[in-house]
Amino acid sequence: MTPRFPRLPHALRPLRLPLGSPLQLVLLACSFALAGYAGVRLFAGDWFGVALWFVGAALLHDLVLLPLYAAADRAALRAAGRAGRRAWVAYVRVPAVLSGLLLLVWFPLIAGQVDRRRYRLTTGLSPDGFLARWLLITAVLFGGSALVLVVRLRRAAKHRPPAVH
């Protein structure tokens, strides 16, 4: 029979750091090194302009965009809740977030606010067609989400026992 020792109070237990596997630690160290390298390269040119851009982007997101998409999400939840389909909101959220992220990243090209000559010389590509491609990707995202919803609803209907009359 092994002797049982009383458990120490939480405050007296030795501190255990929640470290992951060695591979996770190496990947984390590499990502920090890459982020540090990118930061040094980014700030090497116009550090004030980059810092101003980061602050402006954070303020724009926190003061304008976050309240807008939080209000849109609440409105979608409220409307779906009234219809008794609250679980369906996720099938709108995912494509909306992905489409919004693409719009945020590629906004100058989608809106056509780019110097065409400079863009063509830099990339070798035409800046035309970004709006049409973004709209197509958005349609595919929402269509795929609707397809997944229909498949799951049909599968759930097949496994549901018949209603008792």
Rank of each mutant, 00 (worst) to 15 (best):
163 A>V: 06
23 L>C: 12
4 R>F: 05
134 W>A: 01
125 L>M: 12
128 D>E: 15
56 G>M: 10
120 R>C: 08
15 L>C: 01
31 S>E: 07
96 A>S: 15
137 I>F: 04
150 V>Y: 14
35 A>H: 03
74 R>C: 14
149 L>A: 15
14 P>H: 06
98 L>Y: 08
142 F>C: 01
12 L>N: 12
18 P>A: 11
108 P>C: 03
57 A>K: 13
86 R>E: 15
94 V>C: 09
6 P>T: 12
117 R>V: 13
60 L>I: 07
88 W>C: 11
72 A>K: 03
157 A>G: 06
148 V>Y: 12
75 A>F: 00
36 G>C: 01
154 R>N: 11
68 L>K: 06
32 F>W: 06
87 A>P: 03
71 A>T: 13
39 G>E: 02
106 W>T: 14
135 L>E: 09
91 Y>D: 12
23 L>G: 13
7 R>H: 05
31 S>C: 06
91 Y>R: 11
70 A>D: 12
37 Y>E: 04
41 R>A: 06
84 G>D: 10
28 L>M: 02
88 W>H: 14
14 P>R: 03
34 L>C: 08
30 C>W: 07
89 V>T: 11
65 L>K: 06
90 A>H: 12
135 L>M: 13
48 F>D: 05
155 R>N: 07
37 Y>M: 05
148 V>S: 07
122 T>F: 10
45 G>F: 08
57 A>F: 14
47 W>V: 05
97 V>R: 14
32 F>V: 05
155 R>F: 05
95 P>V: 04
83 A>P: 05
106 W>I: 08
109 L>R: 09
58 A>V: 13
57 A>D: 14
55 V>I: 12
34 L>M: 12
90 A>I: 05
139 A>F: 06
102 L>V: 02
43 F>H: 10
102 L>F: 01
26 V>R: 13
138 T>G: 03
19 L>K: 07
23 L>E: 14
47 W>S: 12
143 G>M: 09
45 G>S: 15
130 F>E: 04
40 V>D: 03
77 L>R: 08
68 L>C: 10
150 V>D: 15
103 L>C: 08
66 L>A: 04
115 D>F: 00
88 W>L: 11
83 A>Y: 00
63 L>M: 09
65 L>A: 10
53 W>F: 13
22 P>N: 14
9 P>A: 05
148 V>T: 13
25 L>T: 06
43 F>W: 07
129 G>S: 07
100 G>Q: 03
58 A>H: 11
111 A>M: 09
110 I>A: 01
91 Y>H: 15
13 R>G: 12
13 R>M: 11
70 A>V: 10
76 A>T: 08
20 G>P: 08
33 A>P: 02
82 R>G: 15
44 A>E: 14
72 A>Y: 02
59 L>H: 11
164 V>P: 00
151 V>F: 15
141 L>K: 00
66 L>M: 05
12 L>P: 03
52 L>W: 02
126 S>P: 01
147 L>R: 04
68 L>S: 09
15 L>K: 01
136 L>Q: 03
109 L>F: 13
90 A>S: 13
19 L>Y: 08
61 H>T: 11
127 P>V: 09
133 R>P: 00
